[in-house]
Nucleic acid binder design. Structure first.
Length: 749
RNA sequence: UGGGGUAUCGCCAAGCGGUAAGGCAACGGUUUUUGGUACCGUUAUUCGGGGGUUCGAAUCCCUCUACCCCAUCCA
């Protein structure tokens, strides 16, 4: 299990500890209306991962409540994705459609409770009646219908007596709720359509908001994890489960931020557009962020999982950089995959002083990958090297072959360029070279130093293969649509030359093409007659980067200024209060302002003040700590009184306790409602101000932290807080912090 | 504009009143028969802005700002 917990795991642990839930049950609940993408992978990793980490289980549920959009081919893709990522769902695949009878029964129950009604407004009317975000809606006249009538109508809706749109079933909640979702949400609509599993059995289908919470409940889900856009739906979720008075335990919904990644799109609509508009070659096009796409491209499930773990889970909308994903696949493949040589853009080299041929035994793995294995590499007089591994007029820092600079052929000999053959336009056609016989790899006695080793293939034995080079699908970092597509996202090299071993004895489907990147034998189009390789990801290329960097101009970091908005003016009464607080009571303007604007707070303050006359300290604790509690509840619900706050402040004024202890006492008052004096007595919280008692502790702390003492003496003043904190910790917070502060700085200088 | 969220390095992200974790990216360097890998080092006096409370604030309070979600018979 991760040592680092995300906020969801923290919630799960708390619920387990508090007994709110006995067993962790999660679920991955996609609607089968599209192919799963890497965003789903995040959700899968989360739901299945949490279940695994807490010895619970996770269900796979198809949320199939909309017969017009769903299809069984998508459920297959979804099942594949979960399996491919290495997870196993509990029992068989669940379908919301399997629960239709139960969900229907719950709807009946709601009607009988008078909490749901059949509405016969038109779609437009319903929209109109809903109001707007700033205006309350109004309830439909049909909400008056009797329970009997509702029951009858709903029954007939189910039987298919009405046309689509004639009636709907709505929950009777609140047409003026601030949360728009709560304005009598629709629970059922009529839909005469064939459902891919339920066929034509039903004429009514439950809406998401009604079906989802109940499906979770039926399956015994404890933690219903979904994405941020459902935050507003949580109120309905809770309303349905509470109103139905279902037997506990019930599920609770928690939301996290969906995955966003730059240079790609994740929305179903846009993905569908790409596929249907033939901008890509199907759902498994290796440029797509679909699971099928990554799979075909050659990504490993491990790398996707690692990625999901690395990006974390939080509630802030975010856009992850693709380089994070690319790192994960490179890192995974680096230790797993054999190295072979493939020349993408060949140029012929004739080694004039070499006769005959030989086979070189070449390891599949570099020295730092602890794997065994090698293949026979044919070597001969005519070879091919990469066109950009030779330059007649190289720039500074170029390590490869030039007329003046020899280079090593990886696993073989060092060669030197003797002559460059060109056509009439000056294009290089061929290089004539010589080799150093004593420079053979592994038994080099030539003493020649070269700057690099390049990959190559023997002309006679090399096989021609197709290599598909993929670049990012979009050229815009946050693509809007088709117009942002990268025209060069696919580059097909149809006559790359590869060493023969790769074709005849594949040891794995994935390879590193030395110095280029990781490649995958395309699972669809590959055959021994016509081998096809997909580029998974390139190797890091610091040479290429270096040469490109010169062109890029540094962009100016624009720090934008923030302008403060206008503050609502005070009423006259508030003005008067403010004046009194600042003028006669001596409160600072900020505190007075906060107090004067909040009637609850100022009343509380006045009451405390009448019990104990210490306006400034009283005001401070009330505007800060009491205010926090009042954000969550009414004054009447508070466990402590203004008088007790007065006593608390008195304890501070008396120097019986420090303000730090006061916080602690206050926490206790909030929880237990105990009197402050009592708390101080019970817990022995009287502060220690006697240097004779504190000094030994300080000495101990100093002795235990020599590193930090040195840092402090070197000028790191922040560390004073560290020492004070340590001393305070050692005394259970009771040492007088002011005294400690003074003493510590004396000790350290 | 009402409600619900969010804001910590170029990108993610820990942190819950006492020394601003970590990963990616970037930049140096060492090793290297991959300009790969590995390894070492550098990169936030500061947490969206401004105030306040405190010996001490990214964490508590006030206030302002920016962005996201909600007015589908989609999920």
């Amino acid at each position: 299990m991760n040592e680092k917990k995300d906020f969801l795991r923290t919630i799960v642990e708390e619920d387990l500890k508090s007994g709110k839930c006995k067993e962790v049950v999660t679920r991955f609940p996609p609607e089968p209306n599209g192919f799963p993408h890497i965003g789903h992978a995040k959700s899968i990793a989360l739901n299945f991962g949490i279940a695994r980490d807490y010895n619970g289980h996770c269900n796979l549920r198809m949320d199939d409540t909309n017969p017009t959009t769903e299809d069984t081919k998508y459920v297959e893709a979804l099942k594949d994705a979960v399996h491919w990522l290495g997870f196993e769902w509990e029992g068989s695949v669940r379908y919301t459609s399997d629960y239709f009878p139960q969900i229907y029964a719950y709807a009946i129950q709601l009607i009988k409770m008078g909490k749901a009604y059949v509405d016969s407004l038109t779609e437009e009317e319903i929209r109109e009646y809903r109001g707007t975000v700033t205006q309350a809606g109004k309830r439909s006249k049909y909400a008056q219908r009797s329970i009997e009538e509702n029951l009858d109508l709903f029954e007939r809706m189910k039987r298919g007596e009405f046309k689509d749109g004639e009636h709907v079933l709505r929950a009777k909640i609140d047409m003026s709720a601030a949360n728009m979702k709560m304005r009598d949400p629709l629970m059922y609509r009529i839909r005469h359509a064939e459902h891919f599993r339920a066929g034509n059995e039903w004429a009514v289908y439950p809406m998401y908001d009604f079906a989802h919470c109940l499906s979770d409940y039926i399956e015994g889900v404890s933690h219903s994890i979904c994405t941020l856009e459902f935050e507003n739906n949580r109120d309905i979720y809770d309303w349905v489960l509470e109103t139905l008075e279902l037997e506990p335990p019930r599920p609770y919904q928690h939301e996290f931020a969906r995955l966003g990644m730059n240079y790609t799109v994740m929305s179903k609509r846009k993905l569908l557009e790409l596929v249907e508009g033939k901008y890509v070659n199907g759902w498994d096009d290796p440029r797509l962020p679909t699971i099928a796409g990554y799979k075909r491209r050659g990504y490993t499930p491990e790398s996707i999982l690692t990625f999901c773990e690395q990006i974390g889970v939080a509630k802030a909308n975010s856009m992850v950089d693709v380089s994070q994903l690319e790192f994960c696949i490179r890192d995974d493949l680096n230790t797993k995959v054999p190295r072979v040589m493939c020349v993408l853009d060949p140029i012929k080299v004739t080694i004039e002083n070499y006769e005959g041929s030989e086979e070189i035994d070449a390891s599949y793995y570099p020295h730092d990958v602890p794997k065994e294995g090698s293949r026979k590499l044919p070597f001969s007089r005519e070879i091919y090297i990469e066109r950009n591994d030779f330059m007649e007029n190289p720039p500074k820092g170029y390590f490869r072959l030039t007329p003046e600079q020899p280079v090593r052929l990886k696993h073989a000999y060092i060669i030197a360029c003797k002559e460059v053959v060109k056509d009439e336009n000056g294009n290089v056609l061929e290089i004539k070279a010589t080799y150093y016989p004593e420079s053979k790899s592994g038994s080099d006695t030539s003493g020649i130093k070269v700057k690099s080793a390049i990959h190559w293939v023997s002309a006679a034995e090399a096989k021609e293969v197709e290599v598909r080079l993929y670049d990012r699908l979009y050229s815009a970092e946050a693509p809007e649509g088709i117009e942002d597509l990268n025209p060069d996202s696919l580059h097909i090299v149809s006559n790359a030359l590869i060493e023969p071993a790769v074709i005849t004895q594949k040891c794995d489907e994935r390879f590193q093409f030395e110095r280029q990147g990781y490649f995958y034998a395309d699972p669809v189009d590959y055959s021994d007659e016509k081998p096809v390789f997909n580029k998974i990801v390139g190797l890091k290329d610091s040479w290429n980067k270096k040469s490109k960097k010169a062109e890029q101009a540094p962009k100016a970091p624009a720090k934008k200024e923030q302008i403060d908005g206008e503050v609502v003016p005070m009423t006259e009464a508030q003005e008067a209060l403010y004046a009194k607080y600042t003028n006669t009571l001596g409160l600072n303007t900020e505190v007075a302002n906060t107090l004067a604007r909040d009637a609850q707070l100022s009343d509380f303050f006045e009451e405390a003040l009448s019990a104990y006359n210490s306006p400034v300290n009283l005001a401070n604790i009330i505007t800060n700590d009491v205010a926090r509690e009042l954000k969550q509840m009414e004054v009447s619900a508070l466990k402590f009184t203004a008088k007790e706050i007065a006593s608390l402040v008195k304890l501070i004024d008396d120097a019986t306790i420090s303000s730090k202890i006061a916080k602690q006492v206050f926490e206790e008052m909030v929880k237990s409602g105990e009197r402050p004096e009592q708390i101080v007595e019970d817990k022995g919280l009287v502060q220690i101000s006697d240097p004779a008692q504190i000094l030994p502790i300080i000495e101990e702390v100093i002795a235990n932290n020599p590193d930090n003492v040195a840092k402090f003496k070197a000028g790191n003043n922040k560390l004073l807080g560290f020492f004070v904190g340590q001393v305070l910790k050692a005394t259970g917070g009771k040492a007088n912090p002011q005294v400690v502060n003074e003493l510590v700085s004396n000790q350290l200088y």
